[in-house]
Design a protein around this nucleic acid. Structure first.
Lengths: 400, 400
DNA sequence: GTTAGTTTGTTTGACATCAAAACAAATAAA
DNA sequence: TTTATTTGTTTTGATGTCAAACAAACTAAC
């Protein structure tokens, strides 16, 4: 059990200071002291450590109306790098981010099969190629994160169940660790997408946010009280299998009427085929949507209606301040967003609905992989990294 | 902003020790040291403080196979009391609990109207009567908690919206504070029910649990990572308005097909009337259910089917290790439970479903009020009170 | 009965950390 | 040139935990 001791204090205060520097750079020591409530001496000593470690750099003096000029501090985002991997069904997308989550290099490889052995080989090859491109830095590569479609036990790094990949109980982390000598973290792709938007995207100010990853299936990354919700078995977020039609279409999960039967890219392709009388690819539908084709608009509206229903249910249940629509369906843009918002307006309770912004992913195709990389960042920086802790009550003991 | 300092350490360690004593009493100082990892000296000094405060008492020596006999410690549950209020639509239920959540006295008053002024007067009268019955103690009455049906902003103590009471934006805490000179806490009744089961009921060992309060309406108390989830506006848990029938019955919330139209006590009364051709009260249906009347069994099964659908959706989404069914519908007992479990088995994903126990409330009619009282306990003891601090990572953060 | 060994709990001293205050440095305005 | 002000460092002190030594209490073997 983790007890309270001196090291805990120091970690906590280092975290506070690091996050002020990260979020408000350039910032002076004095400013940090005022905003954090920490003593100036404490701030100076911790900042010195960060400068030693290479994580913080002095940017030089700033102007001030009166008195001694402050020596501004900045976060040294290129002090190290992390690698993020998005494992798709037909591709592997690998990228490198610096400590500020900026993508410095990326590439993609097709996956001809979903056979575990060959997928592992492809991932390893991609990571190694990426590693060879990364510039030298103080900390080097601090770790690798993967976002995987399916149920993942984060703590063990096992893929419990992925119908899309056809995997069950695959010890993916163990397989990768045999070839890659870096810390490896594996999570569900919706979780990594949510992390990415929280840390580097549209949700940096939100304490409670949900990220709807809508692709072939639907997964939801849930962030509450600034932290990712994984649940007791690590599989939280499967709102894609929320039943929205009582006696609806049979789903691959064995149930009926699941949301992802009505609001995924696959559902869009079906709906379009039904309306237009001809089956075309998802990408083609997106093209026709941009051209304003009526059937495409109608199909997206239908999908948006169901997606909006699912989102309404989650808004009612979790009362987030932000809902992000990510993954491939977000390409449908404003058209999708408008129909989703209409449904929320008419279906969700007024109080939570009026509080929830609904936005498209701001990181687009890089969201999942960037979030995966941030798994490594979070671990390296001991606990949620750019982590806004507003409610300290959870920490407290009792009062005499 | 809360920074890391010595007082934080001490609070944390006091919490750790207090919870070991609460949960494992009788326990010796040496045992606490081993289990917590804290130094023996630290344990002794903190325990002395607790003894000074009257929260812990020495129970006397225990036997040991060899060596010095340990001096066993116990939690002094009668060192203080808290008052809990369940505000129903037709009644106020008030009780007093000791620090271990044991009910020491309780009574109920009918509510002839839901007019704010008269309800407040009735609550105040009930609380004052309860106060007059409480025995003297070291700490006295540490506070009052209320569980209210509807949307509540916990931080302000305002009832935002309660269709059942016909209330909107009622500053209930302010009204009560004018008459009662004690700390007052107000929360949604499902939240207080969930707290009660977490602290004193069937969920003491669960990190993630959901409490379905099924009465006239349906509310859900959500506990994740050992803490209550309130959401950004304080209204999380309204899964009662989850849409489970796409073009279903119109709900008072303005939407269609909400779960509580199909799975509340009100829905049960309707369903029974439809099956039996005659309308009888909820209590009467429960009597007939106990007698094994076919229509009653059928009606409960129907309600259980829908409730099971809603629960499945939440199991998929939040992956809890426990689902508790509470409030009045829990009187339907095993019959309800079985039909709910059947639906979960066939509808929810195998991985999360196999992890989620489904149980009836163990505190019955006292759940809401007991949980309400525990709001005061939690506040007094700064943070979740008998709180198993397994995951410290959440501690290391900061800011807003 | 005495002694050795064991466990419990306290005392003491070392160490880490933050806070407060004093101090030094740098600068603008009077 | 002096004064006021702000920034950042150094010094000192308070608080809390930890490790080790110690004292107390007990069992079991001789």
């Amino acid at each position: 059990m983790r007890t309270g001791d001196q090291t805990l204090i120091k970690e906590l205060n280092k975290n506070i200071i690091m996050n002020l520097i990260r979020n408000q750079s350039p910032i002076s020591r004095a400013q940090i002291s005022v905003e954090s409530g920490l003593n100036k001496a404490t701030v100076s000593s911790i900042v010195d450590e960060f400068i030693q470690e290479g994580l913080v750099i002095e940017l030089g003096p700033a102007r001030s109306a009166i008195g001694r000029r402050p020596r501004m501090l900045g976060f040294n985002a290129t002090a190290g790098y992390a690698i993020g991997v998005e494992l798709g069904i037909e591709y592997v997308h690998v990228l490198t981010v610096d400590l500020a989550g900026r993508v410095v290099s990326s590439h993609e490889s097709p996956l001809p099969t979903t056979d575990v052995r060959s997928v592992v080989a492809e991932i390893v090859a991609c990571i190694k190629e990426e590693i060879s491109n990364i510039p030298d830095s103080d900390l080097g590569i601090i770790g690798v994160g993967l976002g995987v479609p399916g149920l993942v036990d984060f703590s063990s790094g096992n893929v419990l169940y992925s119908p899309n990949l056809g995997w069950s109980d695959v010890p993916l982390r163990a397989y990768l660790e045999a070839h890659i000598n870096l810390p490896i973290f594996i999570d569900n792709e919706a979780n990594t997408g949510a992390l990415a938007e929280q840390l580097f995207g549209v949700g940096t100010a939100d304490e409670n946010a949900v990220y709807f990853s809508v692709g072939t299936g639907i997964g939801v990354g849930i962030i509450l009280n600034h932290g990712l919700i994984r649940g007791s078995g690590g599989t939280a977020g499967e709102f894609g299998h929320m039943i929205v039609e009582a006696r609806g279409l049979r789903c691959s999960c064995g149930s009926r009427g699941c949301l992802e039967m009505y609001a995924s890219t696959r559902a869009l392709v079906s709906k379009y085929a039904q309306l237009a009388g001809t089956t075309v690819s998802f990408d083609e539908i997106m093209r026709r949507l941009r051209d304003g084709e009526n059937n495409a608009v109608q199909a997206v509206n239908s999908i948006g209606h169901y997606l909006g229903t699912g989102i309404s249910n989650v808004i009612n249940g979790l009362n987030p301040s932000l809902v992000v629509i990510g993954n491939r369906l977000s390409e449908a843009g404003e058209c999708l967003l408008n129909s989703v918002k209409d449904v929320i307006h008419s279906s969700a309770l007024d109080v939570p609905a009026s509080l929830a912004r609904v936005e498209l992913s701001s990181l687009g195709r890089n969201a999942t992989a960037t979030g995966a990389a941030s798994l490594a960042l979070n671990d390296y920086f001991q606990g949620p990294f750019p982590y806004a802790h507003t409610e300290p009550s959870r920490v407290g003991g009792r009062q005499g």
